[in-house]
C-alpha cells in the first residue's frame, strides 16, 4: 500500500468559445489533447455552461500564436487551468444567450435558464426558445463569441522557511491525494513479479467525466506497474541507449493488466479548479510503484532498492550477500 500526492499548478491559461449559426459550438484553445482526456472534459464544461450537450462542441487545438495561451499538457493541469478558461469563455456566451432569450421571451435576463438545448424562464418552463434558434438569430447580428481566462488562484503564503520555498508552496494549491493497495505475486525462483490487483482511491475533487477519469486511472496504474517492474532505459559505455525501441523498453501490455478497482473521493477543496475539479492523469502514477515496492519488500524481507525492480534485481536481492546488478 502507498499514498501519493499531486500538485495543482496555478498558471494563466485562455480559451475562446463560440456558437455558430447552426447551433454547433467550438472551443478554441492552445491546450492539447494527448491522451489526457481534455477532449471530453473541456467540452462537458462548456456545454454545461450554455445548456448544450458536450457532443455539440468541437475542440479546436491551435498553436498559441492563434489560440489563447496554455502551458501545454504537462503536469496534469489542463482541466485545472484551461478548464477555468473555458468556463469563463462559455459564461460570456451564456450571458449573450440570456440577453437574446430575454428579448425573445420578454423576461428578465437574470431569470433565463439554459438547459437541454433550450432557454426558458425560471418558473415558467413553457416560455422557451431553443438555443439553436437564438444562435441562428445571432448569426445575423452580434455573434456568439466568448473569451476567458479566469484569475489563477493565488498560492498559499509561505509560513517560515521550507526546503522548497515559494516554488514548492505553489504546488499546494488544491493538492490531490491518492492511496493505492496492490496484490502482488512473486515467483521466488526467478524474481518475476506479477501485479494481480490494484485498488486506487483518488481525491481529484469533482469528477466531471467519470468514464474518462476511470480510463486515466487505469492507464496510469498500468504505467505505474511498468515503472515499478519493467520500464527502464539502459545505456552502453558510449552513452547510447541500448533499448531505444519498444521491443526492449518493456511497457506493460493488455495481457499484463490486473483488475483495477477505482474509487473517487469527492470532497470540497479550497481553490479547486472548475466546479471543484482538480487534475488526475499522472496522479495515479505516483502511488502504484510505491505500493508494489512495499508489497515486494514484505515478500522478500527487505526493499529492492532500484527501479525498475526487474525480475533479475528482485532475484539477486534474495541471493545471500550479493551486490545488486548495475545497468
Amino acid at each position: 500500500m502507498a499514498i501519493g500526492w499531486w500538485p495543482s499548478f496555478s498558471v494563466p491559461s485562455g480559451a475562446y468559445v463560440k456558437i455558430d449559426g447552426d447551433g454547433s459550438g467550438q472551443i478554441i484553445t492552445g491546450a492539447q489533447e494527448c491522451g489526457t482526456g481534455a477532449v471530453m472534459t473541456l467540452r462537458q464544461l462548456a456545454a454545461d455552461e450554455v445548456g448544450l450537450r458536450a457532443d455539440d462542441f468541437e475542440l479546436v487545438y491551435q498553436d498559441t500564436s492563434v489560440a489563447p495561451y496554455d502551458m501545454g499538457a504537462t503536469g496534469s493541469q489542463t482541466l485545472f487551468n484551461n478548464g477555468r478558461a473555458v468556463v469563463a469563455a462559455a459564461a460570456q456566451v451564456a450571458e449573450q444567450l440570456r440577453a437574446l432569450a430575454a428579448q425573445h421571451l420578454e423576461a428578465n435576463a437574470a431569470d433565463i435558464v439554459l438547459a437541454d438545448g433550450v432557454a426558458s424562464v425560471a418558473g415558467t418552463p413553457s416560455a422557451s426558445v431553443t438555443i439553436a434558434e437564438l444562435a441562428a438569430q445571432a448569426a445575423g447580428g452580434e455573434l456568439l463569441i466568448g473569451h476567458g481566462s479566469g484569475a489563477p488562484p493565488a498560492p498559499p503564503t509561505t509560513v517560515g522557511s521550507t526546503c522548497v520555498g515559494d516554488v514548492g508552496m505553489a504546488a499546494w494549491v488544491a493538492p490531490q491525494f491518492s492511496c493505492h493497495a496492490v496484490r502482488v505475486k512473486l515467483d521466488r525462483d526467478t524474481g518475476v513479479t506479477r501485479v494481480l490487483q490494484v485498488s486506487a482511491a483518488h481525491d481529484s475533487g469533482t469528477i466531471i467525466n467519470r468514464v474518462g477519469a476511470e480510463g486515466q486511472v487505469q492507464g496510469a496504474v498500468l504505467m505505474g506497474i511498468g515503472q515499478a517492474l519493467t520500464e527502464g532505459t539502459t545505456y552502453d559505455d558510449q552513452a547510447r541507449q541500448r533499448n531505444p525501441a519498444l521491443l526492449e523498453y518493456k511497457l506493460q501490455t493488455c495481457a499484463d493488466a490486473p483488475t483495477v478497482d477505482i474509487s473517487f473521493i469527492e470532497i470540497a477543496t479550497p481553490d479547486a479548479g472548475p466546479r471543484g475539479a482538480k487534475g488526475l492523469a499522472e496522479a495515479p502514477n505516483v502511488a502504484t510503484p510505491a505500493a508494489i515496492s512495499n508489497a515486494l519488500a514484505q515478500l522478500v524481507g527487505h526493499p529492492v532498492r532500484r527501479l525498475p525492480m526487474t525480475a533479475e534485481r528482485v532475484w539477486l536481492s534474495m541471493q545471500p550477500a550479493e551486490p545488486e546488478v548495475a545497468g
Binding site: T190, T230, L247, T253, C254, A255
Partner: peptide, 12 residues
C-alpha cells in the same frame, strides 16, 4: 519460458 510480461515478449 521466462518472460517479463505476458505478451510481445521474447524468451529470456
Amino acid at each position: 519460458r521466462l518472460e517479463y510480461r505476458r505478451a510481445m515478449e521474447i524468451a529470456v
